[in-house]
Nucleic acid binder design. Structure first.
Lengths: 178, 178
DNA sequence: CTTACTGTACCGTCTGGACGGTCTTGTCAA
DNA sequence: TTGACAAGACCGTCCAGACGGTACAGTAAG
């Protein structure tokens, strides 16, 4: 891992996520991202030689961040807490953030559906891992899918649930997870 | 409701859904839809004077179809089956279709996120209705969210679950629903 | 004569990307 | 210490192509 000498790269990625969230996934143009990041278009293209590379970086950063958070929560987990429980807690916290943290995904899909493949692979891997660690398959299925539903609602910004309901849901899931 | 004299409208809508699914949501251009529907671009714009109207029709048709299916399943439901149970069954069947039936949604979002508002409203309405009909709030939350998760996986075409697992999930949910 | 198109030509706009130039920073010989 | 110089980071402009949408003449059916 080379030492970063500038933070332009990160600024650009953050700007891209912001633009996607605020002006809609279809309006994620290089110009918009560049101006939002306080960088010229040339500078943007210097960091990410093509739009596809920008999207790819967005995906990779997102996945890496989640993976690190999951690992951290696992090792820091209170003794006796099941992996499924930590997964539920972490995902619920993540989904409780007011900003739909990943609405840039829509931009990526619109650009090229293949950007989903790493995400799919990651999910499958996480799921398989949980499957190996959870004795009760039924509980795993219900909890995993419910969390996926929570993620989906956050992504589509359709918060049907009240805060109380969300809390009740999470506690129910933790109960099911045992 | 005027009697339809032509089926061009439906052909076009189906073609739009196909194009969105096959060539990616970002490639949903009027030209592509027209040629896929076997209709000239002029003819397409004759039926849907603007792209936004086409998207709107896509959304409305989808919502109407689901609502009708839900009503039908409710009235035809076996006596004693709870509304939540019918909702689970119908949605599970719907999500079991091989084609992601609504990947055009991504196109709509990319075009203008406001196309989501009718969908959000519809979901909220369905949820509120279920809430009034289901005594056990915890069960409702878990089941509704899990179904939402199933829908999401189908939409993103990431089938982490095997057929057996999906069956087990649905039966578990029905058990929870009581 | 109307409806429901077809087919073609065209326009204005937007977008990704290429390109050449510019400013800054680090290196190293004298 | 200083000056030369190269590499890195970025700017601003320009362009070809794609897309949504318009206009309009023609046509086949009822």
């Amino acid at each position: 891992m080379k030492a970063r000498r500038t933070n332009s790269r990160d600024k650009i990625l953050a700007a891209a996520a912001d633009v996607a969230r605020e002006t809609g996934p279809g309006s994620l143009s290089l110009d918009a991202v560049a101006s939002r990041a306080g960088v010229s278009k040339g500078g943007l293209l210097y960091n990410f030689p093509t739009k596809a590379k920008l999207m790819q970086a967005l995906v990779e950063d997102y996945l890496r961040a989640f993976e690190q958070a999951l690992d951290a929560a696992r090792t820091a987990g209170v003794g006796g807490e099941s992996p499924l429980a930590t997964y539920i807690k972490l995902s619920a916290e993540h989904a409780a953030e007011s900003k739909p943290s990943a609405s840039w995904i829509f931009s990526a899909i619109a650009e090229d559906p293949d950007f989903l493949t790493p995400i799919k692979a990651f999910r499958r891997q996480v799921f398989e891992r949980l499957k190996g660690e959870t004795p009760d398959l039924k509980a795993l299925l219900v909890c995993y899918l419910a969390i996926e539903g929570l993620r989906s609602m956050n992504l589509f910004d359709s918060d049907v649930l009240s805060q109380d309901e969300r809390r009740l849901l999470v506690s129910s899931l933790l109960e099911i997870a045992g």
